[in-house]
Design a binder for these strands. Sequence first.
DNA 1: CTGAAAGCGCTTACAG
DNA 2: CTGAAAGCGCTTACAG
Lengths: 349, 349
Amino acid sequence: MDSRSGRGGRPARQADIAEAAGVSQTTVSLVLAGNREGVRLSESTRQRVLKAAEKLGYVPDPVATRLASSRNHMLGVYTFASAFPTDVDGFYYPILVGVEEEAAALGQDLVLFTGTGGADARAHDRTTIRRTRITDGCLFFGRHIPEEPIDWLLGSGFPLVYIGRRDELDGRIPFVGVDYVTASAAVVDRLVAQGHRSIRYLREDDDAPSSTDRETGVLQAVRRAGLPTAKVVVRRAPSDVGPSLIAGWRRAGVTAVIVEETDTGSLARALFETLDAAGLRCPDDLSLAVLGRSPYRPEASGFEVPRRELGRRSVRLLVDQITAAPGERRTAQELLPCTPVIGNTIGPA
Amino acid sequence: MDSRSGRGGRPARQADIAEAAGVSQTTVSLVLAGNREGVRLSESTRQRVLKAAEKLGYVPDPVATRLASSRNHMLGVYTFASAFPTDVDGFYYPILVGVEEEAAALGQDLVLFTGTGGADARAHDRTTIRRTRITDGCLFFGRHIPEEPIDWLLGSGFPLVYIGRRDELDGRIPFVGVDYVTASAAVVDRLVAQGHRSIRYLREDDDAPSSTDRETGVLQAVRRAGLPTAKVVVRRAPSDVGPSLIAGWRRAGVTAVIVEETDTGSLARALFETLDAAGLRCPDDLSLAVLGRSPYRPEASGFEVPRRELGRRSVRLLVDQITAAPGERRTAQELLPCTPVIGNTIGPA
DNA sequence: CTGAAAGCGCTTACAG
DNA sequence: CTGAAAGCGCTTACAG
């Protein structure tokens, strides 16, 4: 049995222990903090304090601890995506799973910053973003990034890691990204090896790094194959993907189409639906490759983004940043390789 | 342009604003807190303070706010389940989605308490659980509940809501649960209406309320139908579900089997696999009903647990508890109805 | 080896 | 209408 609390039914504090053990509150703090170097306490005092703490059912107040010291073993997760990953089929969910796994493994709690009302109504301003400072460090993600508040956070020395490559702010943003360039080039290589000479790459009309990198990889490989790059890249909003686009390609002798699958997922989907509606089958009528795996056609050829690993590594990098001495903290940026997906939509030209 | 911070590059505090505006820090706090009743401030002071705050890019420190006051608009999520919902197919994920949606709608951030290392190694003791107090209130879930720390939290007046019905601690635990009794009885009614007279109910050998309630509903309906209840309930560990069990039922003339789908999901799965292995088809050879929807056989007849709604309502109840005056806070307990699933595994006896 | 004091950044009576 | 002071529960120099 224990008394379960300090005076008045509230949870016991260090002061209650101090009183019970006949020592100062400072001493209690010292004892409970464990063996900090340079501090020596008599064994008898230690025991008395420990016993009193046990008896009173003492548990440190995490809020006070955080205010007075610096670490609280909480990591933030903040998203600039239009929808927080509440969607079961969402692009972000596997990333979150990885984040959660690694956080648990490293003994960190997670704070999901969702509280600003509807995702759309949300202003990613400084006030909103500064709330992340309640944590030891924060993970950010989303296709686009508001530079000002991130700059501000970074400038204040707050540890953060972006999930996804970022080149804003003179490359000062630490991130764990995906090597879309290499993966995308490999897809083109595969098509070329199958004899395809007239290829189109359908991409979103939106310049997030993940899209830009895919395009870079595609063009690199096209050039390397000695093919003309002029008409390869086709920018389209999902709503502008229709029968006439496909018909035009076929007239031009196009034999393979590549499409990107991003966090919005709608462009690839629009293409699949248009192909289906036109009665075209892949790879019989046309070879198809997807840069990233689509839930609507998981068997398509292309590559898979290591989303879970992305989450895990981001957490590890963030914890590294938090742990590193502020002086020696360098901008850490890493890229993860994608896994090729053989699939069944690429055939000979 | 603004100076972005107080002196020395650190984020601005109220004291910095006070200095800049030539008022006291108290006044700054008063102004920024908005219109608290009984406090009147001259418009000119207000404006000066607001202007200075804006200029310095002031954002309140949530930790300090929480320590000094009581609310910080963060809700906790804590699980006693053996696995935190990191599993994509996990039972808990839809609940979490509901929690997140509603939290966002109500302007609350979410803290996921995952940080105690591996789920199994985790000791749900007071120290671990008290960390939830960093939030305004916390959601708990999992089949089993360690009474002592929950009692302790409850006793300290900390708002909490259990996701799932609970009758421990003399019914003092607020919860949002599922009406398994009614839903399970309805399933039996359906079987009886189809002429089934010899029914077996396969359940886990584990007494969580969700299992107990299903059994209660099943037995209620069996009794109501004037059928013997003696042999209806069969308790089995998933590993003990095999061909001999099924063979025995068939010899005994059993025409319908009901199985529960819980958060572990393994018992229903074991049954499906055994039926498949035995080459039995439902409803041709045997009618089958699942109490809860299984990802392994979503088309099975039975009912669907309103998991997303469970999450949403839990958040609402929790926020109600937080908002209510401590005195008038009553134990709030509610049960949600399940959605019947017609399915294709029930046929005439 | 131990304690008194200041401080983390706020809120909240309590005075004027 | 505004300010000085105490307090939330800790940690961390700084003295002894």
